[in-house]
Amino acid sequence: MIKRLALTLPTISPLGGGVSEAVRLHLSALAPASFERISVHAVDASTEKVDPAQWRAAELHLHRFFGPKSYSFAPGALISLLKANPDLVHVHGVWQFQCAAAYAWSMLTGKPYVVSPHGMLEPWIRARSPQLKGAVSKLYQNRFLRKAAGFHLLTDKEGGDVAEFVTGQPSRIIRNFAQAFASDGQPPSWMKPEYEGRKVYLFLGRIHEKKGCMELMQAWEKLSQDDADFARASLLVFCGWNDGIEGFERRAEELNRRFGNVLFAGPQYGPDKARSMASARYFLLPSKSEGLPMAVLEAWAAGVPGILTPECNLAISFERGAAFLTGFTPETIYPALKAAHALSDAEWNDASQRSKALAAEEFSEESVRNGLLDLYQAAVDWKRKTR
């Protein structure tokens, strides 16, 4: 019987992207279960943009790290795990120090941990900074993954990403979920009178090379040149923070000067994020690599259909009519944008209702809670048998 559970991750700040949001939702799902205590251990002490009320179901242990943020060496994370004395640790994300802390904790206590890679073992990710990741893998991460008592996977595809580390441990595909959408009905802070009535194509999240943002702007430019009605009636809004794309802001400003239909609104959180989502006609993610993107589920909960690549690992969205299929090249994004623009209001309303239904039926809080509890018990049983 698992009485004490620990969750460990890089950071609880929304600036950590989808992992921090997924863990926050896991905590929400697990809070009604009969745990004596749930503790959260992060290797970054940042609480920027954090709403404390969203983490009140757990004891928070946030640690100062040393050295580069990409690794976040935080020895305090191991100490706090030992003091919390959990029966099982759920490790979210790989490549950073929370993995080493959980591995050392398990070696010292003999207790099990399960791992959620969150898409970070996908080949596109592994190919980035290969020397550093190769060193981390050889130093401890490969052993950490092979000694895991279970794996939480987001997609069928992720099963292939972890196959080399699975030696009989239980693994479960447990998809993320989105909470019910609510907005106060106010316009987003970036809305201007000249934008009212336009179809808003929203990108919301980390602005990174793998997300296809520059390719999206290239396709947007060509369609705005080719179709004057599209250029007048549409607005491309980027909400997020630039994570290393040189020239992104300059490119967005250039397109806005030419067509008046591109805006970089910066990061959006809380009510601002909900207002931006409520204003959107479509949610854009022409990504080259994803685990299971939280923001898409949030968009569907708000009734916003997606324009997504297969790499978003949400094939069900195309089957259920909640998304348009695109690639991540300008040549494949262009026809997807054109098809979305051509949709009638009645057709869009149908896609919006399909999006809401998909979020409610296939990505529910109850299914996540039951799936995690089943995985945790299976991991404890597996660890006991293999001692």
Score class of each variant (00 low, 15 high):
R4A: 07
L5W: 05
L7W: 06
L7V: 11
T8R: 06
I12T: 08
S34V: 05
F35P: 02
E36S: 12
A42G: 11
S46Y: 05
E48N: 15
P52S: 06
P52W: 03
Q54V: 02
A57L: 12
F65S: 11
F66R: 14
K83P: 00
D87F: 09
D87S: 12
V89P: 00
H92Q: 13
V94F: 08
Q98F: 06
A101N: 12
T109N: 04
V114W: 05
S116N: 15
L121Q: 12
W124T: 06
W124H: 09
A127D: 12
K138L: 15
K138Y: 11
K138G: 15
A149Y: 00
G150R: 03
D161P: 00
I174K: 04
R175C: 05
A178W: 03
Q179A: 11
G185V: 07
G185R: 00
G185K: 01
K192N: 10
Y195S: 04
E196V: 14
R206S: 13
R206F: 06
I207M: 08
E209D: 14
E209M: 13
A219L: 11
A219N: 07
W220N: 04
D226I: 00
D226G: 12
D227T: 01
D229L: 13
R232C: 14
A233H: 14
L235N: 04
F238R: 01
W241M: 11
G244H: 02
E249H: 08
R251N: 09
E253F: 06
L255V: 04
N256D: 15
F259V: 03
G260R: 05
G260D: 01
V262A: 05
F264C: 10
P267N: 10
Y269K: 10
G270M: 10
D272M: 12
D272K: 12
K273G: 04
A274K: 15
A280H: 01
Y282G: 03
P286T: 06
K288G: 07
P293S: 07
M294T: 06
A295T: 09
E298F: 00
E298D: 04
E298G: 00
P305K: 04
L314K: 07
L314R: 12
E319W: 02
F324C: 09
L325A: 14
T326S: 14
T329F: 01
P330V: 03
E331F: 10
L337D: 01
A340F: 02
A346I: 09
N349G: 06
L358S: 06
L358E: 07
S364N: 08
L372C: 04
L373P: 01
L375G: 07
L375S: 09
W382D: 10
R384E: 14
